[in-house]
Amino acid sequence: MPYIQRDLNGNISAISMKSGPEFSEYLSPTHPQLVSFLDNYKNVSHSLAALEESDMEFVRITEDLVNTLVAKNVILFTDLPEAVQQKLLAREKLREQIQGERNESFMDDGEAGVF
């Protein structure tokens, strides 16, 4: 039983399964305004998930860019703020650890596998 809250323009701004002071108006689950609100919420949720996924990709791009600039002596690693240095070093250590674990999973009885 969806109860809704409306904004100043009369649009649905929130829904609740329980009635209350701010959720006093009941709408049928098939009411067009409620269906539209839920569709919009679903679209926003998908967009947020896509943005979050692209954020992780962008972090890796930025990290690679910093590594390239340092490798080409455009900047010195020590020119970066201490907090940035620590985060980059921590990520590098995690990647090395993961790579080491991946390599071990390709081993058979201590011998290197054929690739």
Rank of each mutant, 00 (worst) to 15 (best):
I61S: 13
E111S: 06
S19Q: 07
I4D: 04
R95M: 12
M56T: 01
T30Q: 08
T30H: 03
D39N: 02
S28A: 10
P21D: 03
Y26W: 05
L69Y: 03
E63M: 15
Q33H: 10
N43T: 14
F106T: 13
F23A: 02
M56A: 01
K93W: 04
N9G: 12
E63C: 15
F23V: 02
A50F: 04
V59M: 07
L94M: 11
I15H: 04
L34R: 00
V74N: 10
I4L: 04
D39A: 00
A83W: 10
Q33F: 04
D109F: 08
L8S: 13
T68Q: 12
L65P: 01
F106P: 12
E82S: 05
R6I: 03
P81F: 10
L27R: 04
E25W: 05
E101W: 14
M17S: 10
Q33V: 09
L27S: 05
V114S: 14
S24H: 05
K18G: 00
E52K: 02
L38I: 01
F23W: 01
N67P: 00
E96W: 12
S36E: 11
G110N: 09
E101F: 15
R60D: 13
K87Y: 00
P32W: 03
E57Y: 01
V35W: 00
F115E: 09
G110A: 10
K18P: 00
S105D: 13
S45M: 12
V84R: 09
L51M: 10
S47D: 14
T78C: 06
Y41M: 12
D39S: 01
L94C: 09
L34M: 01
V84D: 13
T62D: 08
E82N: 05
D64M: 03
G110H: 10
T78S: 15
A49D: 03
L69I: 09
F58E: 15
L76G: 14
E111L: 11
K18Y: 00
S13F: 07
Y41P: 00
R102E: 09
I12E: 01
K87S: 05
G10T: 03
P81Y: 08
F37V: 00
